[in-house]
Structures are given as structure tokens and as C-alpha cells.
Amino acid sequence: MLDDRARMEAAKKEKVEQILAEFQLQEEDLKKVMRRMQKEMDRGLRLETHEEASVKMLPTYVRSTPEGSEVGDFLSLDLGGTNFRVMLVKVGEGEEGQWSVKTKHQMYSIPEDAMTGTAEMLFDYISECISDFLDKHQMKHKKLPLGFTFSFPVRHEDIDKGILLNWTKGFKASGAEGNNVVGLLRDAIKRRGDFEMDVVAMVNDTVATMISCYYEDHQCEVGMIVGTGCNACYMEEMQNVELVEGDEGRMCVNTEWGAFGDSGELDEFLLEYDRLVDESSANPGQQLYEKLIGGKYMGELVRLVLLRLVDENLLFHGEASEQLRTRGAFETRFVSQVESDTGDRKQIYNILSTLGLRPSTTDCDIVRRACESVSTRAAHMCSAGLAGVINRMRESRSEDVMRITVGVDGSVYKLHPSFKERFHASVRRLTPSCEITFIESEEGSGRGAALVSAVACKKACMLGQ
């Protein structure tokens, strides 16, 4: 009897593995994704193909990295998701002549009506938060230079001027797309009239992360975010950046690689679950690469896999709870928690219980395998993109072996128990001629924006502006 049951459990697990095998990517698959990513990057950089390229390769006008001589107080704003952060950054000489960066910050959550109302409502709310922060720190009387981390696709015309191309991540505030974001912020500050600010720089969160990590390690020339969304930036040779005049030196390019796949480059790798996630998203047909990796989508992918296993009578005796059938019910943090389970399955059992399920031991094991399959594919897909960037940098610099540091931020990278190990191992397999160091950014977005502002202020002083 026991043997029969054991055989049935083994057969069930084997069927589960057959279904989950769809998520496995072979090294040849990853090399294919990497080569296609490089081709799209090239198209994004070139003037004649930029418009139709899915990977936009947006110039950021960040050319210099901090040298350690900029000092002063800077205000930093960070808008990239449902939370908005205001930070005071003091850049100065530390002990023994070292450079020191001290920060104080406060988080504000953005109400739904500000995210989806008008641009005026959104930026009025942001300036209200700045006003509140300055009151708390008794700094209303000071006109501070301000660095703005704005983590949406922007076409820069200068370091302090950028046109919002399109909202992502659930934002829909009308009247912002096609307009200068810094102008919208300046107008809102003017409307309030109770404080003055000098907006000197606007950067993407990947750029802010790279600059913040450069402060720790001067070989950091790539910034990457794996959180709600997924994106990367890197220092490109100016001669390859056709959208900006000049051939000397390097400029940081914001790849906006989340949109890779929007022209069909990933079609052969998309599964039924991916198509369902895409169809029910706020932007169907867009940001397809990001939807395979980002935390906004990972939990939902797992939920759809679990429903398939229920329908195949391989999980929960073929019956799903009402909660499990509800879109968004299986949160991405559950994926991390399930994979963090120590082996007694308590954590998995508790999560499934909150979803109205009474799982068996085998159910718990199957749910864990589903989570591992989805998150491992995410790590491997992400590795193909980064390997594409790094191999490109090595080739354009004609280096036999390139040493490089990548600064990384984002909740999936930082909080998932195995993502970074799987990701690092896969990147290294795909970049055999590179020695890569990964560092995690601390308060990256805010500190990085302030350091970019410090560079901009120093330049302005040198130019006598």
C-alpha cells in the first residue's frame, strides 16, 4: 500500500517536472537572447534605426563620474514606483581627507489618484512632500541643488532636461508624456511658492545606482535594477552614441532593455503563462523582457503555473481556492519566502493557508518547484541581457580580458534567497573573457542622484555659470 502511494507521488512529481521543464533555458538559448539583445542595442544607438529599435539606448548626458572633490548639501528625489523618497545628502571631506556622503531620508507613498490623475496632481503632491521634508529638517530658507531620480523612459536633451516617452509600472498621470519632466517639477514648486529649489540633474535609477557604486569602486561602469521592473545602464564610447554629437570619451546610456521583445525577438521563448500575464497587464505587448524578470510579474506567473497544475490534477487534489483564482493573489514576496523555507515546509504551508488552501507535504514541495522554475528562468533571462552589455563593452574597448564592476539594486536581487547566485553564475558562463565584480548599492537611487548633481554643480562652477 505504502509502495503504491510512494509510486503515485513519484509519478505525480515526474509529471510536474515535465510541465515545469518549459521554463528551462539551455545555454544556447541564452546565447541567442544575448546576441539578439546586442543587435537591438546597436539599432538603438544608431541614428537611422533608433526610432524602430525596441531597446532605445537613451543617452543620459552623464559623462563624468564623481571624483571626490564636490562638497555641499544636496536634496535628492526618487520616483520610480508607488513609494517616493526625499533625501538630504551631505557631501563633504571625511576623516583623513576621505570623501564622505551622509544621508537623511523619508519615504512617502503615492496615492492612487496622483498616479493615475493628471501630471499637475502628481507633481503638486511631490512638491508637497518636499515642503514637508524641508519643514522637518528646518531647511526651507536654503535654496538647495536638487537631483531627481526618475525611473521611467526619458529622452534627455541635457542633464536637466528630459522628455517622458511613456509611463510604465502602473503610472498613468495624463499630460506628462511628451513633456519635460524637470519643467513639470519646477512648475509645481513655483505653484507652491513656499520654498526654492535648483533642479540641476535628472537621472534614471540605473544611472543613480551606477554612480553610487562608483563611489565604492571606481571600476563600476554598469548599473542595473532588478526590482519591480528590470533595466540597466553602462558607459558607452561616445563615438557609438549617434544621437549625441561628439566622439570623445564616454557617456552613460540608459538601455531601457525592459522593452526588448516588443518587436518579436522573444516570441519563441514566451510561454502561455507569459501571454496571460501580458494580456492582463496595463501595457499589453510592451516591456516583454521586463515581464519575464521583474517583481511586478513574478508572483503572478507562479500563480498561473499553480492553476495549470491544479487543472492537471497534480496539486491540491485538483481544487483551487477562490483566493488562488484571484489575479495578483500570489505576491512576489511569497516566491522569495517559499524558496527561503528551511525544509520543514512550515513557511510554505503558512503562505498557502493564507490563500485558503490546506496543502499536503507533496503540495508544498511542488509549489516550491514552481517558484524555483519561474525565478530561475528570470535570473537566466536577466543574465543574457547583462552578458550582452558586458561583452559589447569588452569588444568596443578591444580588451582581451576586461575587469568590470556592476552596481545592482532592486528588491528581487536583494531579497530573493537564490536569485543573485543563479544570476551571477549564468552571467559568468556567458562572459568567459571578463572578470566581473557585483556590488549592491546602498540607498543607491538617492545618493547617486545627489552625486550626479554634485558633478553638475562642479561643472557649472568651472564653466562660470
Rank of each mutant, 00 (worst) to 15 (best):
R7M: 15
I159W: 13
V181G: 07
E339K: 01
C457V: 14
S281Y: 11
L315T: 06
L25R: 04
R369C: 02
G444N: 12
M115A: 13
T60H: 01
I293D: 11
V203I: 03
I348R: 03
H317E: 15
T228S: 06
G448A: 14
G178F: 15
R377Y: 01
D160S: 11
L58A: 11
S54Q: 10
Q286N: 15
E157I: 13
V302A: 07
N254D: 02
E440P: 06
T361Q: 15
S100C: 07
E95G: 04
Q98N: 10
K136E: 08
L357S: 07
S453C: 13
G294K: 02
G410M: 14
K143V: 00
E40L: 06
Y61A: 03
L243G: 02
C461A: 10
M202R: 05
I436N: 10
T82M: 06
G246P: 05
L276P: 08
V241N: 01
V222K: 00
Y297W: 13
K169E: 13
E40D: 03
A456W: 08
L165S: 14
T65L: 09
G388Y: 06
E248S: 06
L88F: 05
E319V: 14
E221L: 08
M210W: 00
F23L: 13
E22D: 14
G117I: 02
L306F: 05
L271E: 02
A379R: 03
E440C: 12
H105R: 06
F316Q: 07
H218V: 06
Y349N: 02
A425E: 08
L355V: 03
R428W: 09
G264Y: 13
L292Q: 14
L307C: 06
S375F: 03
R186Y: 11
H105E: 06
S396M: 15
A11Y: 14
Y289S: 15
V277M: 04
G328V: 04
D278H: 14
K296E: 08
E70W: 04
C371I: 03
L304F: 10
A259M: 08
Q219H: 06
D409W: 03
K56Q: 04
V338M: 00
F133K: 01
C252E: 00
M224V: 15
F74L: 04
F74A: 00
M37W: 04
G299I: 03
M210I: 01
K143H: 04
V182A: 12
R327F: 14
F269K: 05
H137T: 13
E28W: 11
K172G: 04
S174G: 06
L2Q: 15
E322W: 11
G388H: 05
H380C: 08
V200D: 00
S151A: 10
D29G: 13
D73G: 01
M107D: 07
M202A: 05
K102D: 05
E442Y: 14
S396T: 14
K296W: 14
Q26C: 09
L184F: 11
T60W: 00
Q347C: 07
D4I: 06
I366R: 04
T354H: 11
V226S: 04
P284Q: 14
G162T: 13
A370S: 04
A370I: 04
E319L: 15
A114V: 11
A11R: 14
V302E: 02
G92K: 10
H416Y: 12
G385E: 12
E421L: 13
D341G: 02
S281M: 08
I163G: 13
L301N: 12
V338T: 00
F260E: 00
L309Q: 00
Q26D: 13
M87Q: 01
G446M: 13
G81D: 15
T437C: 11
K458F: 15
M57T: 05
S263V: 06
D4N: 07
L79D: 05
P111W: 08
L451P: 06
E435M: 13
I19C: 09
D160Y: 12
D311W: 09
I293F: 14
Q98G: 09
I351E: 01
V182L: 14
A173G: 05
M402F: 10
A188D: 01
L2D: 14
M37G: 01
D78Q: 11
E322I: 12
Y413K: 03
L45N: 12
E93P: 09
G162K: 12
R403G: 09
E372N: 05
D113R: 05
V181I: 10
I366T: 04
E319A: 08
V199P: 03
T206M: 01
E268D: 01
I439G: 06
W167N: 13
L309C: 03
G343A: 05
Q98R: 11
D135I: 08
K32F: 06
H218M: 11
R308D: 05
N313W: 12
K190R: 12
T361Y: 07
K31F: 08
K459D: 05
C129V: 07
L352F: 05
R368L: 07
T362A: 02
F330Q: 00
V406S: 03
S453I: 13
L20W: 14
H50L: 03
T354I: 05
G448E: 11
L324G: 02
E237Y: 04
E322R: 08
D217F: 04
S280K: 08
S100Y: 07
T60L: 01
Y108R: 08
V452N: 02
V62R: 00
T431W: 04
D187M: 09
V226M: 06
G446D: 11
F84M: 14
C457F: 12
T255I: 15
A320F: 15
A201C: 02
S54D: 10
L314V: 09
K13H: 14
V241G: 00
L309R: 00
G328R: 11
L292G: 12
S418P: 13
A10C: 15
N179V: 12
E40Y: 01
K172A: 04
D409F: 05
G294V: 07
W167F: 14
I163E: 13
D278L: 11
E9F: 06
G261V: 02
K102W: 11
T354M: 04
L30V: 05
F148I: 07
T342E: 04
Q24H: 11
Y413N: 08
H218G: 03
L304W: 04
D365Q: 14
A460W: 09
E395R: 10
E14R: 14
P284Y: 13
F330E: 00
Q239N: 08
G299M: 01
K414H: 13
G410I: 07
T354E: 15
D187W: 01
A454G: 10
N180W: 15
V374M: 06
E256W: 12
L352I: 06
S76T: 02
G444M: 15
V338C: 01
L288R: 14
S445A: 11
S340I: 09
E157T: 15
G227M: 01
L25E: 15
R191F: 06
S281I: 10
S109H: 05
E93T: 07
C364V: 06
D267S: 06
F133M: 08
E9S: 15
C129W: 03
R191G: 04
I404P: 05
R422L: 15
